[in-house]
């Protein structure tokens, strides 16, 4: 071993990575606002869209039998049930803010909150 554990170049690299992380974090944070719609997609296709301030229980049943259940209550969204093998989506915290997501990877289900009117108008028009 002998030589120092960290060289100057290592420090520079760490600094750059940290900087990129912090800048993108700051950028995301500044864009964080209360969300207004919930979009559920299955394999990239929109399955259902609904309002965040409207309490609701959504069952996502896919043709292959995959099943997930999402609850929207008082502006918060969470997954209550799923028959996926890992159940990580069910364990996920409630989401509330713009751009927050809950993912069920085995079922390719993404629940996301979107805030901007421009987004919702687009999708409703479809």
């Amino acid at each position: 071993m002998g030589n120092k554990m960290l060289k100057r170049n290592d420090m520079i690299m760490m600094g750059i990575v940290l900087l990129i992380a912090l800048i993108s974090l700051g950028f995301f944070f500044l864009n964080k606002k209360e969300g207004s719609a919930v979009i559920i997609t299955v394999d990239g296709e929109i399955y259902q869209q609904t309002e965040l301030d409207q309490n609701n229980t959504i069952k996502i049943k896919q043709d292959n039998g995959d099943y997930n259940e999402v609850i929207i209550e008082d502006g918060y969204v969470w997954m209550t049930d799923a028959d996926c093998p890992d159940k990580l989506c069910v364990k996920h915290n409630k989401i509330h803010y713009d751009h927050e997501t809950i993912v069920c990877l085995p079922h390719k289900v993404v629940v996301e909150i979107v805030g901007g009117e421009e987004n919702t108008v687009d999708i409703i028009a479809k």
């Binding site: 990239g44 751009h99 997501t101 993912v103 990877l105």
Partner: peptide, 8 residues
């Protein structure tokens, strides 16, 4: 998951 939001 076919969703760019993961970049967050």
């Amino acid at each position: 998951v076919n969703n760019i939001l993961m970049i967050y």
